[in-house]
Amino acid sequence: MKLNSKKKIKSAFESMMFVWGYPLEAKEAADIFDINKDDAYGLFKELQNEYEQEGRGIRIREINKAFQYITISENEEYVEKLCTPVKVKKLSQAALEVLAIIAYKQPITKSEIDAIRGIKCDRVIEGLEKKELVEVRGRSEKIGRPLIYGTTNEFLKKFGFGSIKEIPEIDDLEDTINEKKIEGIPELHEQIEMEI
């Protein structure tokens, strides 16, 4: 691809994302320019990087190879002064545990989830399904063909993952969560102090 046309396509992607609002699929954008979908994906990734490098208040997020404009969390308080966005309720400890199991072990059956927590999780799973954070992915080939669960795109959005591959591995048991920097969340001193 010529540098010139690359720039043009990227600018077009920006306009398209702006109008579309919803996550714009790289494949769909690729079809419009009749280019390879991997190339389109690469261009979206380049754009995403540019916004990050420049420290813009608008960023591009990926949700399973679709891209969307979002604001950054650091600007939440200013956005909220302008309007009152609907706040999402926090998840219970039980819900977070079940969600963690599903996120890391998907696809997984109900009984496998129960076994890890040592307690029945039916109600909790139901709640997570209602919140559209997890969904039934089909049936396992095991005896009784139980339902298997996985996470949704809504989960990726709410937790800031571009795909389930981005869920960070936590394998050091002795390393407590508070000491460890969580990938994708800037540490406090990294955040830019704003003067008003």
Binding site: G21, R61, Q68, I72, S73, E76, P85, K157, F159
Partner: peptide, 11 residues
Amino acid sequence: KKMEYFSGVFE
């Protein structure tokens, strides 16, 4: 923590 942080993100 992730959820708390990303609840400040708007689309």
